[in-house]
């Protein structure tokens, strides 16, 4: 792998290999020394044009556990000045010897451009680009699903036979897009639930089943239901009338949660809007994987950083 820009680029075998490697990475957390020397002498740059403390910390932690030198540029701080272009910033970082650049940007395609515009040579890891993709989030979701479902027998397995519903603002969700491609590549059956206004144009052509009513999807025997974060500013753009109506129609209320099967996982990429897309009853239950997702995020990011930055070329030996 030279870059990780989109889960569309991952076939089943590659995805399973990443999940297996993440499992190895997870085991290092149980050791006396939690660091691996794999990226010693390598420089990983976190380039965050969009504020996200949790994702940034997750990547920093992953890179440090692999012994990389980590430089973080945050648009919110003074490092990335307003008005400096993505190109100039990237070239500055490349000149500092970055081997891998983890980029989060509010514009779709920013990571793709860093990788392919010919500005820099470093490996590029997409940490979320606009409303396009967030591949490591989907990988950690897949990892979480696999680990909860198969436990100690996860290694080597895909998600064939698992049924997952993704609920909410699909239109603006890079997490949803990355999950659709990855989970289906891994053999899972994916259901998307959203009001028409929050469905991307042409979503019917995706390899998924579309529902407009949450209760229709919940009546299926789901292995997991993934609630997407609703950004309250969407209300002002008339995507739905009010938070109350959204919660009633598409929120995982305590009543809906009570009707779920006993083994149905409740997932959320965080941060959650309690009382809007998810009730506290669901978020705090033992079936909630929210904290697992955070832990697994570090392992997944270690695996991906290793694959992108450890070798001299992107191709596995």
């Amino acid at each position: 792998m030279k870059h990780l820009l989109s889960t569309r680029d991952l076939d089943r075998a590659t995805a399973v290999r990443i999940l297996d490697l993440a499992e190895d990475m997870a085991h290092t957390a149980d050791r006396e020394v939690k660091k691996l020397p794999a990226l010693r002498g390598r420089t990983v740059v976190n380039l965050f044009f969009e504020d996200s403390t949790r994702t940034r910390l997750s990547f920093e932690s992953a890179a440090k556990r692999l012994s990389a030198d980590v430089i973080t540029f945050s648009a919110k701080g003074s490092s990335v000045s307003k008005g400096e272009s993505l190109k100039d910033t990237a070239q500055t970082l490349a000149a500092m010897g970055a081997d891998a650049i983890v980029v989060r940007h509010p514009d779709s395609g920013a990571a793709h451009q860093l990788a392919h515009a010919g500005w820099i040579d470093a490996a590029v890891l997409n940490a979320g680009d606009g409303t396009h993709e967030h591949p490591t989030q989907a990988l950690l979701d897949a990892y979480t699903l696999r680990a909860r479902h198969f436990g100690a027998h996860s290694r080597g397995r895909d998600l064939a036979g698992l049924r997952v519903a993704i609920v909410g603002d699909i239109l603006h969700s890079r997490v949803a897009r990355s999950n659709v491609w990855l989970l289906t590549a891994l053999g899972a059956e994916v259901h998307l639930v959203a009001p028409r206004t929050l469905q991307p144009h042409g979503m019917q052509s995706w390899p998924v089943t579309v529902h407009e009513h949450l209760d229709d999807a919940l009546s299926l025997a789901l292995d997991a239901v993934m609630m997407l974060r609703i950004q309250t500013e969407r209300m002002h753009a008339a995507f739905f009338p009010s938070a109350r109506e959204y919660a009633r129609e598409w929120g995982l209320t305590a009543e809906r949660f009570a009707r779920l099967g006993p083994d149905t996982m409740v997932m959320h990429p965080g941060p959650m809007n309690r009382g809007l897309e998810i009730s506290s009853a669901a978020a705090d239950s033992s079936r909630s994987t929210v904290l697992d997702q955070v832990t697994n995020g570090v392992s997944i990011r270690m695996a991906v950083l290793y694959l992108l930055a450890a070798g001299s070329s992107g191709e596995p030996a």
Binding site: G109, R177, H201
Partner: peptide
């Protein structure tokens, strides 16, 4: 605005 804009996460011009 098309299936492609939905996939690429670029706001559609219908």
């Amino acid at each position: 605005e098309s299936a492609l804009s939905g996939e690429l996460g670029l706001t559609g011009w219908p």
